[in-house]
Amino acid sequence: MNPFKTISQSIIFLFAISISFGQQVEKPIITSNQLLEFLTQNSLAYSDAQLEKVNYYNMLTVGDTTVMLKNGTTYPPTHRDYRRLGYDSAMYVGAAIAAFGILYAMPESVTNWDKEDMKENGIFHKWKENVKAGPVWDEDDWVLNYITHPYCGGIYYMTARSSGFNIFESFLYSAFMSTFFWEYGIEAFAEIPSKQDLIITPVLGSVVGEGFFYAKKSILRNDHRVLKSKFLGYTSLALMDPFNTLLDSFGYKERVKTQMNVAPVGFDQGARRPVWGVNFNMQF
């Protein structure tokens, strides 16, 4: 029995169970002067006790996919955070070097890497040969091709998605990273680029990544908990979105952004109309 295959299947199985429990049904409850869960920090809600209803006004944007966190930040960001994406991409470089070392240390039966050729002619000579020869249909274990690679594609996808980019942009980032960073980059030092991986990693990876995206929002809404456990919650976040989770753990903050606009600031009970004023918003 292949121990690598067994361990991989066990991790994926446990991770899938953890994520499935992390996706809770959301039922926002409205009380007096309480903001709806799906209103962003730029929205205002006013409760009219006499009429027994809630009046809410859109000041900037209303987005039912934005999670308001306790520290005042939003998930996902309301704008493209290129600085966050840049930090994440830089961490990929360091992680890739470590991953290459781990793969190189594994048996050739697992990775299918020709270590003797790499030692004899040098890794850069091998990289040129592999790039010229590819892509080819590889014979890697199905766990590597159809579980590990889609998972890695989901990580690439989540890196962009959690930085405020939309579905298509996140797919493009996943495709770029899986193609040029990994297949024709790091992995090409050891083996010929794979046809399956060039397609499966970004395509299935983006599907997996979008599932991670909604699961992460659900976990954040539940105060970073899965099955009422913060340990499972933070573990799931680290598995689904490792670089953004690590970045947030170091206290990453977006640059200060200011906005000024005219918007409802209250409600005139007698006139039954909103009171308008100048709204100034500063986001850190």
Rank of each mutant, 00 (worst) to 15 (best):
H79I: 15
Q9G: 04
N261V: 08
L103P: 11
L204E: 04
H149M: 01
T31Y: 15
Y146L: 15
Y46T: 10
P77M: 01
F212R: 00
F13R: 13
T31M: 09
R83D: 13
L247D: 05
S109T: 06
G277R: 01
M158E: 00
Q41G: 01
P135L: 01
K119E: 11
L232V: 00
Y75F: 13
F180V: 15
G86C: 09
Y57Q: 05
A190C: 07
K126I: 07
A238Y: 13
V143F: 07
E52L: 09
F100I: 10
Y56S: 07
Y104A: 06
A238K: 02
E210F: 05
D117L: 11
F176I: 13
K128S: 11
E37K: 08
T31I: 10
E254F: 03
M1L: 12
Q259R: 14
K195E: 11
M282L: 13
A271F: 12
E129M: 12
F100V: 10
K5C: 09
V278D: 11
F21G: 03
I7P: 00
G94Y: 08
Q9P: 01
D114H: 11
V136T: 08
L36C: 07
R225T: 11
K53D: 04
T245I: 03
V67F: 07
A95E: 15
D48M: 00
W182E: 13
L103H: 12
N33M: 14
S218H: 01
V256S: 08
V110S: 01
T61G: 02
F284Q: 01
A95L: 12
P76K: 05
L198H: 01
V136Q: 11
N42F: 01
Y157R: 11
M240K: 09
I97A: 12
P264Y: 03
A16Y: 05
E120W: 00
Y151F: 08
N121D: 05
E187G: 10
V262I: 15
E254P: 00
G22D: 08
I102G: 06
L60F: 09
M177E: 12
F15N: 10
S89Q: 02
Y46Q: 06
S236A: 11
L204N: 02
I12N: 06
S229H: 02
N2P: 14
R272N: 15
V207L: 13
I186A: 08
P274M: 00
W142F: 15
T78A: 12
K119P: 01
T66S: 03
L69I: 09
F267N: 01
A90N: 04
L227C: 06
Q196R: 10
I97P: 04
